[in-house]
Every structure is written in structure tokens, then in C-alpha cells.
Design a binder for these strands. Structure first.
Ligand SMILES: [Mg+2]
Length: 223
DNA sequence: GCGACAG
DNA sequence: ATCTTGTCGC
């Protein structure tokens, strides 16, 4: 996958900077349903899945998926241009409502303060948390991620392995960290993301490389 | 120019 | 992320 012709990095940065101003970092309050989203790939096809997990009921209460054409390569700091649409489409197919969504990637711990979790949160107007397996930006100071330009932009959380947690949108860092810790599993990622990760791979395995895409590059995941 | 570099 | 089988350990 090559960078689309006409792509302007300066415009992309402008969009990121503008949307970053819309990020809200404040307490969310009580949380019941936590959604998780992730994407798997096979060639230039992206298989995304969203899973909703209820903390009160202690079980999965919903799930959905979407199949999309990949339209952008993986480039650090520009992950949204590759995975955001597949994630949004999987989430919109979730009939279940959720209080917050955990995403495999950075929240505001991004050079332009708009990692994919923050981007999705602002675009959909929902609460979101960024949970990454490795660091993209920031300096680790104790168990915090600090922006060289000033301010705390995330936290280092120890589940099975080290995780970098950052606010996506409409939640506090403390709440985000507490939520991730409460959902840590025997695997690297917290339960909602792990379930979404597995479902995305199941969809890829079951569907293989066959799909009919509409003019927006999406194919049926249910049929 | 060099080092860093989510998935 | 993906490419890839068996093998070691609980
Ligand atoms: Mg992922």
C-alpha cells in the first residue's frame, strides 16, 4: 500500500492539530459497558471487530465486525489514516450501547496529541482510552508518560506486560488507568481489546480473501 | 544527518 | 501488522 496521490502531510498535521483541540480530558464517572476494537489484515483488506463487555454482568453483551479495503500504509503518527475508518465502521454496527471504548493504540500520547484513540473519540463524540503495547511519543518518568514540551500525557501500566495508557477523549487518566487494570487478562491486552483482536482474526480466517466491496470500500461481514 | 518510530 | 511449525511449559 502506497501513500495516496495528492496526500498532503501538512494538511494531515493541520487536521490532527485542530481535532486535538477538541479532546476533552475530564472525569467520566460510573462505567458499565466497555467496548474494545481492533483490526487484523490480509494483504490490502482490513478485518475490524468491536466487542462490548459489561462489567456489571461480567459477560460480553454485543459484538460486530466490518471488512474494508486498506487505503493508507502504516506510518508512525498517521495510524488513524489507516485504521480509523475500519474501527468506526465496526463500532457503528454494534447495536449495543457502551460507556467507553478501549483502542489498540495511543490516545493523546502522540506528537500532535491525536493518537487513533483520541481521534476516534473526538470524531464519534464518545469516551475513549488508548492502550498501546509500545511507546510512540513521550518520556517515561516513573509510571508516567511525560510530554517533553510539558504535561503528563499517559501512564505506564503493568498487566502481563508493560502497557502505555493514555486518555482518548471524555475521561480522566486516573479512570483510564483504573479501568485498564480492572480488565487486565492473562494476555497482553485488556479483555475488551483482546476479544476484539480475536474476533477480527476469526473473521479474517473465516472470510479469507473473498469479499464484494461497495463504493465506499466496505464489504458485508455478516453474510 | 542521526535517532525514534502506535499497528 | 504479517510472514510461519514445532516445541517447551503450566
Ligand atoms: Mg491492533
Amino acid at each position: 500500500m502506497k501513500i495516496p496521490e495528492g496526500f498532503r502531510l501538512d494538511l494531515a498535521r493541520r487536521v490532527q492539530s485542530e481535532l486535538a483541540r477538541k479532546v476533552v480530558e475530564s472525569p467520566l464517572g460510573e462505567v458499565d459497558v466497555v467496548a474494545g476494537v481492533d483490526v487484523a489484515y490480509a494483504g490490502d483488506i482490513a478485518y475490524s471487530a468491536a466487542v462490548a463487555y459489561s462489567l456489571k454482568r461480567g459477560r460480553v453483551v454485543g459484538s460486530a465486525c466490518s471488512i474494508n479495503k486498506v487505503v493508507f500504509p502504516y506510518i508512525p503518527t498517521l495510524l488513524s489514516f489507516r485504521e480509523l475508518m475500519p474501527m468506526v465502521r465496526a463500532l457503528r454496527r454494534l447495536s449495543t450501547q457502551f460507556d467507553v471504548v478501549m483502542i489498540d493504540g495511543q490516545g493523546v500520547a502522540h506528537p500532535f496529541r491525536l493518537g487513533i484513540a483520541a481521534h476516534l473519540g473526538v470524531v464519534l463524540g464518545v469516551s475513549s482510552i488508548g492502550v498501546a503495547k509500545s511507546k510512540l511519543y513521550g518520556e517515561v518518568v516513573g509510571n508516567k508518560l511525560v510530554d517533553p514540551r510539558g504535561g503528563v500525557i499517559g501512564a505506564v501500566v503493568k498487566c502481563k506486560k508493560q502497557l502505555y495508557v493514555s486518555v482518548g477523549n471524555r475521561i480522566s487518566l486516573d479512570e483510564a488507568v483504573a479501568l485498564v487494570k480492572s480488565l487486565c487478562t492473562n494476555s497482553t491486552m485488556p479483555l475488551p481489546i483482546l476479544l476484539a483482536h480475536n474476533k477480527a482474526n476469526e473473521v479474517k480466517a473465516k472470510r479469507g480473501m473473498s469479499a464484494t466491496f461497495d463504493k465506499w470500500g466496505e464489504a458485508d461481514c455478516s453474510a
